[in-house]
């Protein structure tokens, strides 16, 4: 089970990371933007696991574990913030929240 070179994995991870980044930049819906951030984190996880496989040590797995934990924590707070925004603006569009500027 080990014929795939590292560079393929990394490329896949980077593509996913890019897709997530573009999602963050372009989508207006805060929920979708947040999903895109989750995609970015998953891309990093993929890269970490690929490195771990290449090196044959499990430190990368531990790091991925921490990232999942952090993602969960962020999800809780982030969704709570989105709820709060919705309560004020009746909208979850990011560009509707722009009272602070200049």
């Amino acid at each position: 089970m080990s014929g795939i070179p590292l560079s393929w994995w990394l490329t896949l991870g980077t593509v996913l990371f890019g897709v997530g980044t573009i999602g963050v930049l372009t989508r207006r819906n805060a929920l979708v933007v947040f999903m895109s951030i989750e995609l970015m984190l998953n891309a990093v996880n993929l890269i970490l696991l690929a490195f771990a496989r290449q090196r044959g040590d499990e430190h990368g797995h531990v790091l991925a574990f921490f990232i999942i934990a952090v993602a969960a924590a962020e999800a809780a707070v982030g969704l709570a913030i989105i709820l709060s925004v919705f309560r004020h603006k009746r909208s979850v569009n990011l560009d509707d929240v722009r009272a602070l500027k200049h």
Binding site: T26, L94, V97, R98, K101, H102
Partner: peptide, 9 residues
């Protein structure tokens, strides 16, 4: 005003 227009994106 143009750059810092309040849009997070």
């Amino acid at each position: 005003r143009f750059v810092q227009n309040g849009e997070v994106q």
